[in-house]
């Protein structure tokens, strides 16, 4: 009835329809946030809702910029990126070792995963007491309200995530190719860096992206272990909800500003995702 080409065309259209629907569901609450960030107080609760503000105002953005909002953004950036470096630095070799040589067997990998399982309520008070530090002569050595404190604590859940995902990616890489490279005169490390890593790069960037996001969005540890100097933007965002008022506009504006760094990362790493295509995938 239909030619193969026509069928393909119909299929492609269907794919686009589904994707566009999915995109609209995903983006709808964010579009609502964008619209809210330009609203004034009278437009938050209206019937029917105000989809596009009548007199868009940038007051919410100027408020964020005039207050300390951006300092907290900087804190989040420092904490999330340094944590990411640390986590990937130890997780890539660990995952490689576990995937290739079964180091430590099941127990080790499961122990690493279990670092993510314990509810933070159990460990947060000891972390606080530990980080409170001690008095050295007239200086207080402390990790409270310090970037380093959160960078370390976030390792507990991010290493678990990174190691587990990376094991999967390393194992999907055929060991024979790596061995061939070693036989061809590469050192083991050289083989990994030159042959394995480029192929599983999509996996590594996706892992990194989510590690970054987990640190970025973490709330409870940030609440208890920081005060002002190392306060993260996630904490600041939660402040816009007060018992007597929700500062919808200010909150929306700051959360959109907050998205930008992550958005940049996502756009950037797409190169790796597309590059991966050269190695496969089901063709349409």
């Amino acid at each position: 009835m239909f030619s193969r080409r026509a069928l393909l065309k119909i299929e492609n259209i269907a794919v686009y329809v589904i994707l566009v629907m999915a995109v609209s569901l995903a983006v709808f609450p964010i579009a609502w946030t964008v619209s809210t960030s330009f609203k004034s107080v009278g437009e938050y609760y209206t019937y029917p809702p105000v989809w596009i503000p009548k007199n868009p105002t940038i007051a919410n953005y100027t408020y964020i910029i005039s207050t300390a909002g951006l300092d907290y953004l900087r804190n989040s950036l420092i904490i999330a990126s340094l944590n990411l470096l640390l986590v990937l630095g130890v997780s890539i070799p660990a995952a490689y070792g576990i995937a290739r040589f079964r180091v430590g067997g099941e127990n080790l990998s499961f122990w690493i995963l279990s670092q993510r399982m314990l509810p933070p309520v159990a460990t947060i008070i000891p972390f606080f007491l530990l980080f409170r530090g001690f008095q050295l002569f007239d200086r207080q050595i402390t990790l409270l309200d310090k970037h380093l404190g959160l960078i370390l604590v976030y390792c507990t859940f991010n290493i678990a995530f990174a190691v587990w995902l990376l094991i999967g990616f390393f194992e999907s890489f055929p060991a024979e190719i790596e061995e061939a490279a070693v036989i061809d005169g590469c050192s083991r490390i050289g083989a990994v860096l030159r042959v394995v890593i480029p192929v599983i790069a999509p996996g590594i960037v996706v892992t990194g992206l989510f590690c970054f996001i987990f640190s970025w969005n973490e709330f409870l540890f940030a609440l208890i272990l920081t005060r002002e100097a190392a306060k993260t933007v996630t904490l600041q965002l939660s402040q816009f909800r007060t018992p007597t008022k929700i500062l919808w506009g200010e909150m929306s504006a700051l959360s959109l500003i907050t998205i930008i760094p992550i958005l940049v990362i996502v756009v950037f790493i797409q190169r790796y995702l597309v590059k991966g295509l050269a190695f496969g995938a089901v063709k349409g």
């Binding site: 008070i125 606080f128 409170r132 609440l223 208890i224 002002e228 402040q239 909800r241």
Partner: peptide, 25 residues
């Protein structure tokens, strides 16, 4: 005066940890 703005929902737990830690923050 240095103002620290607190998240209303969770200030109770924040205070308690600072108190038992005796930090005087």
């Amino acid at each position: 005066v240095k103002v620290i703005e607190m998240t209303a929902d969770v200030m109770y737990e924040k205070y308690m940890t600072e108190f038992i830690g005796g930090t005087g923050a």
